[in-house]
Simulated scan of single mutants.
Amino acid sequence: MSKAENIIVGISIGDLNGIGGEIILNTFEDERVFDFCTPVVFASIKVMNFLTSHFNSEITLNSCNHLNQIKEGQLNVYNVWKEPFEINFGKEDLKSGEYAIKSLEAATAALKNEGIDVLLTAPISKKTIQSDTFKFPGHTDYLAQQLGGNSLMFMITDTLRVGLLTDHVAVKDVSKAITPKLIQDKIDTVYESLKRDFGIERPKIAVLGINPHTGDSGVIGTEDDDTLRPTLQKIKESGKLVFGPYAADSFFGSNNYKNFDAIIASYHDQGLIPFKTLSFGRGVNYTAGLTRVRTSPDHGTAFEIAGKGEADNNSFKEALFAGIHIFKQRKEYEELTANPLKKRSKKG
Rank of each mutant, 00 (worst) to 15 (best):
K347R: 09
S315L: 10
T337L: 07
N285I: 07
F275N: 04
T295Q: 00
R294Q: 10
A338F: 11
E335A: 15
L290P: 06
R294P: 10
F303L: 06
E334I: 12
L320E: 05
G323P: 06
R292K: 14
I305P: 07
A302V: 04
F327M: 07
D312W: 08
K308N: 05
S345A: 14
A319N: 10
S296H: 02
D298M: 05
R282D: 03
N314I: 14
K346D: 12
Y333V: 01
Y286M: 12
N339P: 08
P274N: 12
Q270W: 00
E318F: 09
K342L: 15
K308I: 05
T287F: 03
K317I: 11
L278H: 04
E334Y: 15
K343V: 04
Y286V: 07
F327T: 06
H325D: 15
K347T: 03
I305H: 01
G309D: 08
F321I: 10
E304H: 12
G323S: 13
N313L: 00
K347Q: 12
E310L: 11
I273D: 08
F327R: 12
Q329G: 01
K308M: 13
G300R: 06
Y333W: 08
K342M: 15
F303Q: 01
K317T: 15
L290C: 02
T301A: 06
G348A: 08
T295K: 02
R344K: 12
G307Q: 04
F303N: 00
N313V: 02
T337M: 03
R330L: 13
G309E: 05
N314A: 13
K331W: 13
T277M: 09
P297E: 00
V293P: 12
G307H: 00
L341T: 10
N339S: 14
D312H: 10
K343R: 11
Y286H: 13
A338Y: 06
P297I: 08
G300C: 09
